[in-house]
Design a protein around this nucleic acid. Structure first.
Lengths: 343, 343
DNA sequence: TGTTAGCACTCGTCTTAGTGGAGTGCTAAC
DNA sequence: GTTAGCACTCCACTAAGACGAGTGCTAACA
């Protein structure tokens, strides 16, 4: 059996109604739908078919129907196609004077949560294949030197090193020049053993410092350790009865608090490359605790190979339509903000 | 009427039992207590007195008694006196190789939450009256300079400035020397208008850069904006039936997620200077949403005027004994860790 | 052949009444 | 001053019943 025009309309009506009410929807409710003009009995027949096809299901006999994961999936896929061009507007995010991306991201998570009434997460961008831009050593006190590493995209890392033998400013200057001239513009993969060996020879008696500096460099460019995940609106789960019983809510909120588990969502790289938006419904999610939820993730791209992920977690009866539009808008905005700060 | 020895013993027994079970405790339960040897009837009489005195109360007729805020308060005050010298041991916090205080604090919040089964929060240290140690300007690209400000306690701030007219390295060097010689060792209060005016005169045509740099300095030393609060174990609220109904739990967890409201706890500076530990019971708390909870805060002090706050939020029937011991131990540990990293 | 009205049936939810038990306060005796 | 005993209170739990939303099926209609 195929999904004809009418069945699709009915399915859509069921899903939409369920999204609003959160309760199983019956045939009479759907029969009142304007552009159908069918009696409840007819609807019942069609619903029975839709159930056989696996798009909807009954929580128990004599209850209405609710969409199955398969039903949601169809709905979402269909919708993504329709929405693909259109990008709606949401209010400009309030950006405080701080030009720090971190704060903006935190704010974005908050705004998103407030707007959608779902739980949200956002990661700091990951600097894949980022190049070194600048290294600076300075003598802070007699036995401490400060290492500052700037990578492409103005990612800055500091490290304080303890040193054994005294260094004078002139030596530091020389080391600075040496380091910058040897390493400038290289990616982490390009700094290999031979580069390092050459560096050490040139550094002479200060080769141990080179080691420490390289550690700092590695730390600065290495993303793994440094990826932060900001979350907001975890308590929104309480707004949806199907998720708000103690046990489920506790699990979900814990997951959000822990953050580590959320990394799984980030790392699942988007198969849906075209739009960068990925929807996981129910069991499709890589995070087990979210099996009763739907998760929508979007990848934002700031150029220079910097990418981050935004995610929204809510009940399966999520307003997919709005969520996807909002995410798209946000991605565009992040892009703007970033490039405005840049120039 | 005064609290005689026997009443005090009974009150303690009631509170202890209630701390464990979380349910109103009746006279028979207490009568079984070893070192009392009284019948339930006698206990009932005493309990009636204790109720008149306001130390315990009945949720409803024919239920057992639970401690009132006043009862908890007496219990806690008494206990703090007893525990004042003793500092117990808990397992060493796992410190990863990172020598960053931030990570340690996050970890500390987690360990504390896991250990106590309450929700915990910890603030990054606030750098009051911190002195400037070092300023470094460097040319990163043609129109960007990097400002690095190091304050006492090795707090490092970075800022990227955009510049209009080209600067050569020599000018930068001069500015560096100028800035460091004028500002080194000063606190934020000591950098006043006359200092700034003098600086600008000396900087000549580059006085606008001085402005930007001073902004960065202010930002680096200013604590307000920069105080981070890490939280952990917010879902522990679910473990205590009296806090776990949707509404209360949601409010509490929101408060923890928001973090802003938590600042109120931090800012209430400890009246109890001697130990640095402060206990708020029920309505005593400055945060309204926690009126059904108890809050224990401790101030840790890393020297150099750097202080932070650790807090634990749980049900009123909190294991005050353990919490206070644990907090004390943690404070000592933070101190150790910090000074080990320092030297 | 597709659509519809009608009806019996199912099953979850809400309400109500009833029961059991934990705990108290009071009184009288030791 | 302490204790045993008893009547009383009130919550928590359970079972039974009423209600209603929704279904599936059948028969009639266009």
């Amino acid at each position: 059996m195929q999904l004809d025009e009418r069945k699709w309309k009915i399915l859509k009506a069921i899903i939409k109604t369920y999204l609003e009410t959160g309760e199983p929807v019956g045939s009479r409710t759907i029969s009142k739908y304007a552009d159908l003009n069918l009696s409840s009995a007819t609807i019942r027949n069609e619903m029975s078919d839709l159930e056989d096809l696996g798009y909807i299901l009954q929580p128990h006999t004599s209850a209405g129907r609710i969409p199955s994961d398969k039903g949601y999936r169809l709905y979402v896929d269909q919708m993504m196609e329709e929405k693909d061009k259109e990008v709606t507007e949401i209010k400009e995010i309030m950006i405080q004077k701080q030009d720090k991306m971190d704060l903006i991201l935190k704010e974005a998570a908050k705004v998103l949560a407030a707007n959608t009434n779902y739980a949200t997460m956002i990661t700091t961008p990951q600097y894949r294949r980022t190049k070194l831009k600048f290294i600076q050593l300075s003598l802070v006190s007699e036995e401490q030197i400060l290492v500052v590493v700037v990578a492409e995209g103005n990612v800055i890392k500091n490290k304080i090193l303890r040193i054994v033998h005294n260094l004078d400013n002139e030596t530091i200057l020389k080391l600075n020049i040496l380091l910058n001239s040897s390493l400038d513009g290289l990616t982490i993969e390009e700094i290999n053993l031979s580069t390092i060996a050459r560096l050490k020879v040139q550094a002479g008696i200060h080769s141990e410092i080179v080691n420490s500096v390289l550690d700092a460099v590695a730390e600065a460019i290495q993303m793994e350790e440094d990826i932060e995940i900001y979350t907001s609106g975890a308590t929104n789960f309480f707004k949806y009865p199907e998720l708000s019983d103690s046990e489920k809510a506790s699990e979900l909120i814990s997951t959000f608090e822990e953050k580590k588990q959320l990394a799984a969502l980030v790392n699942e790289r988007n198969e849906r490359q075209e739009t960068g938006i990925q929807v996981y419904i129910g069991n499709e999610t890589p995070v087990q605790t979210m099996k009763d939820c739907s998760v929508v993730t979007a990848t934002y791209d700031l150029g220079d190979g910097m990418q981050g992920t935004i995610g929204i977690v809510g009940p399966k009866r999520m307003d997919y339509d709005k969520v996807i539009s909002t995410l798209k808008t946000l991605m565009v905005q992040l892009d703007h903000i970033y490039h405005r700060n840049e120039s």
